[in-house]
Computed example of a mutant assay.
Amino acid sequence: MSTNIVWHNTQITSQQRADQKQQKPVVLWFTGLSGSGKSTVANAVESLLFAKGAHSYLLDGDNVRFGLNKDLGFSDEDRVENIRRISEVAKLFVDSGLIVLTAFISPFIADRAQAKSLIGDANFLEVFIDTPIEVCESRDPKGLYKKARAGEIKNFTGIGSAYEAPVAPDIHIQTDTLSIEACATAVVDALTTKGYVKS
């Protein structure tokens, strides 16, 4: 990192931005296997938040890899860097007063802990989209499990690379037993209970 840089403080504070939006900014960090329903649930949550008048933004794993992280692959090292970058971006969004939804596999406990440390405990909720790998593989919406089983994709989480499930997530959602609507409602209810959005 260059030593010839200085952090620039802005006139408008993070609290003022949050007050303007009448909400408490937070990162909803959705984690789970490929095919677990992270993006689908996150999209449904954002729709509910939008309907409530909340200000949010969804950062999806695939979408981020089209631009910001297009230079990264799927090795363990690149996965770590992928999460580091998105954590920094999410932190800036929180500073703007937004509710940020991030839908990334983010397979390693240490990386999610680092994201939480960077963003801050008060502004970070880990949302575990807990779906058995057998169910994820039966869904296989992108055909990735089939390719991984055929050896066409290396380091695929759950098959060629480990997924470390959260030990004590802030919000625990099981998509194999609940509808998408019920999953999204459970997340928004938790946000309301925790005081991030108004009822």
Rank of each mutant, 00 (worst) to 15 (best):
2 S>E: 12
10 T>V: 08
10 T>P: 02
11 Q>D: 01
13 T>A: 02
14 S>Y: 00
14 S>W: 00
16 Q>D: 08
17 R>T: 03
17 R>M: 05
17 R>N: 08
19 D>A: 03
24 K>F: 05
24 K>C: 10
24 K>G: 06
25 P>N: 08
26 V>A: 11
27 V>D: 03
27 V>L: 08
31 T>D: 10
31 T>W: 09
31 T>Y: 09
31 T>L: 08
31 T>M: 01
33 L>M: 02
35 G>D: 05
36 S>H: 04
37 G>D: 04
38 K>Q: 01
39 S>A: 10
40 T>S: 10
41 V>F: 03
44 A>E: 03
46 E>T: 00
48 L>A: 12
54 A>W: 06
54 A>F: 03
54 A>P: 07
54 A>H: 04
55 H>G: 06
55 H>I: 09
56 S>T: 05
57 Y>G: 05
58 L>G: 04
61 G>D: 00
61 G>E: 04
62 D>E: 10
62 D>W: 02
65 R>E: 08
67 G>H: 04
69 N>R: 07
71 D>W: 11
72 L>P: 01
74 F>K: 09
76 D>W: 00
77 E>K: 14
78 D>I: 04
78 D>Q: 08
81 E>C: 11
81 E>N: 04
81 E>I: 12
82 N>L: 08
83 I>R: 02
85 R>H: 10
86 I>M: 10
86 I>G: 07
88 E>F: 06
90 A>Y: 03
94 V>I: 06
96 S>E: 02
103 A>Q: 06
107 P>T: 15
109 I>K: 13
111 D>W: 10
112 R>V: 12
113 A>R: 15
113 A>T: 14
115 A>D: 08
115 A>E: 03
116 K>R: 15
117 S>C: 12
117 S>N: 15
117 S>Q: 15
119 I>D: 00
122 A>L: 04
128 F>A: 15
128 F>I: 12
130 D>N: 15
133 I>N: 12
134 E>Q: 14
134 E>I: 15
139 R>G: 00
141 P>K: 10
142 K>S: 12
144 L>G: 07
149 R>Y: 12
149 R>Q: 11
152 E>L: 14
153 I>G: 13
153 I>E: 04
160 G>A: 14
161 S>K: 13
162 A>R: 07
164 E>W: 00
165 A>C: 13
166 P>W: 07
169 P>M: 13
170 D>G: 14
172 H>S: 14
173 I>W: 13
174 Q>H: 15
175 T>W: 05
175 T>Q: 05
176 D>E: 14
177 T>M: 03
181 E>H: 13
183 C>L: 07
183 C>E: 01
184 A>G: 09
187 V>A: 13
193 T>V: 15
196 Y>I: 05
